[in-house]
Design a protein around this nucleic acid. Structure first.
Lengths: 348, 348
DNA sequence: TTGTACGCGTTATCAA
DNA sequence: TTGATAACGCGTACAA
């Protein structure tokens, strides 16, 4: 019977190579130390049956001594089924995205998948970097990307991709998104019903997109005296970005009585800027957000907004991945498009 | 010269086994289809030199046809160095944690590590589940855990762990945390200097912890007429939790003139509850938060709070992991403890 | 430029 | 209950 001891002088949580350098202990080292075969070590470590309790104890002791941990790679080689998804988020500081991420994580957990998260910090170079890594280390990627399809494809190396918030006409990849047109329709109807006609919009940093397009479309439909000149590009999707944009918009279009925010953060910024200028919200200026962050309930006046089910967006993305992996057709149309719900509070 | 075509009738992004089932294409299949050796495929796919451009093209075409992607496991076996850390977060909906996560992600990215994220949703069972998975799939784990050390150890299988916000006397694992005592000292000094003596506290769901302890300690130091009876346990670390707790606290201790929130969310809830009861903030009741969420700048009155550098907390945790992996002693004491900064705004 | 042979660490199969 | 052997898919010397 072997006694379990790694060394006479000292034991190390690693094993010495012939050349003197140290490497992590492998199952083989444990087997040698415990005086059993690799197979027996495997049985002990993985809690299989068919092993003598005493043997098992001896093996585990040896493993502990050597600080042995099975290589996840070697394991993965032989046991199929581990799925890792990559998730690329543009800005963890914007409360919108953690909620989407929560939906992804939740759905992934239910399927037994893991999720590797990357924060691209709204930087296309970092987007590509994320893809370079994830295309090697993940079985599929979900995320927000600004890069065009061909760039994505080039850095993707064939890994399935599900884009967040990209319309079908904007990408050939699978996607889940938000029905901006349906949202703006509801929002605009609300403002027009309240008598507003001179309505502005604070647009996101990326310029003309579905939200602005839908905004202009609705303005036209309602016959409002509103065109591109009533939209103001902001340089950050943040409260500060909204404040600065609102200042400019009020300079350019002082006659507005209502304003759409690209998102809730910017809408809150708009409220603050407007009030600083002495405009009461909603009496002098109605403000409408887009997102439905819980933050909107805490500001004063509380923010009227187009609420999006962000967790569902994340869950849907995971479902798209599952379809892709199964070789099925991804969802498209209404199934993959979340319709914002108008939540009326005090600001509009 | 071989022509590249997977099949005469149809091609499939997979390969048929002798038994008729399908499996993913391997490097071997690509080699066969392209009429080269596996080695050549490897060269083509990994963009090494020393390969005829025409050959490379043929190989890549074959790879495309078979939807070939290198197995990350087989790759990992032969190329060491890929590090994956696990991150366990209790609640992605609380803006505090995404910011910590951003710090972790940032530091991990700099080191070329990946991060697998889990949302334990404040559930000890899910904590253990996370550990069971991550102990297999990650090289180290960072996270918030409520489970006691021995439970953690049992589910950890020897994987290095860095605990977030656990004091040295509370765990034998490496940790990084927040110096609650230093924070409360500053906060209490501020309130006392403003003349407050009847000060209450809304405590977190987990009951007596460093923050409450420091609160009582400071109250004693300042000779305030305050004891355990002036603290109120809340059942959620949220605005709603703070509101409900504040209602109870005002019932139990209507004489209070100031209140500490366990975190900013709860402090905001406290403000709302107080104002609903007709108390003006800060005139009738001063409210002090703990976290420094940007949210606090948006509410009215803006929240005075003990600001924590949450990103730094995350970065520090990664640094601890690096030390653990290098076999070094993890940081302890002041190096691993973040001191909250008092940010005075309108609420106190 | 291309191919052969081997090792990486683990689990599964089957025989002892 | 235990052990020998064969995969698993890839990269990399080294040989051709």
């Amino acid at each position: 019977m072997h006694s379990v001891r790694a060394d006479d002088q000292q034991w190390e949580p690693s094993v010495e190579r012939p050349d003197g350098t140290r490497r992590r202990a492998t199952i083989h080292d444990v087997a040698k130390l415990a005086g059993v075969s690799r197979q027996t070590v495997s049985r002990a470590v993985n809690d299989k049956g068919e092993i003598d309790p005493a043997t098992k104890e001896r093996v585990l002791e040896a493993a502990r001594l050597l600080d042995y941990r099975p290589s996840r790679f070697a394991r993965g080689m032989v046991q199929k089924g581990a799925v890792t998804a990559g998730l690329v988020i543009p800005d963890l500081m914007n409360p919108f995205f953690p909620e989407v991420a929560a939906g992804v994580l939740e759905a992934a957990e239910q399927r037994g998948w893991q999720v590797v998260v990357w924060d691209s910090r709204i930087d296309e170079a970092r987007e590509r970097e994320a893809l370079d890594v994830l295309s090697h280390q993940a079985d599929a990627v979900i995320g927000y990307f600004r890069s065009p399809d061909d760039v994505l494809a080039r850095h993707l190396g064939g890994v399935p991709l599900v884009l967040l918030e990209r319309g079908p006409q904007q990408t050939r990849f699978a996607a889940v998104g938000i029905d901006a047109a349906a949202g703006l329709e509801r929002g605009m109807a609300h403002l027009v019903a309240a008598g507003h006609r001179r309505i502005g919009m604070l647009d996101g940093v990326h310029g003309p997109g579905p939200r602005r397009q839908a905004f202009l479309e609705e303005a036209r439909r309602h016959g409002l005296p509103v065109d591109e000149g009533w939209t103001e590009l902001c340089d950050e999707h943040s409260v500060a970005g909204g404040e600065a944009g609102m200042e400019r918009l009020l300079d350019a279009r002082p006659e507005i009585t209502a304003v759409f925010g690209f998102n809730d953060l910017m809408a809150v910024g708009a409220m603050r800027a407007a009030r600083r200028r002495g405009r009461r919200v909603p009496d002098d200026l109605a403000v409408l957000g887009f997102d439905g962050l819980s933050l909107g309930e805490l500001v004063e006046p509380a923010l009227t907004t187009l609420h999006i089910d962000k967790r569902r967006l994340g869950r849907l993305a995971v479902e798209q991945v599952a379809r892709l992996r199964a070789g099925e057709e991804p969802m498209s149309g209404p199934d993959a498009w979340i319709i914002p719900e108008l939540v009326v509070r005090a600001s509009a």
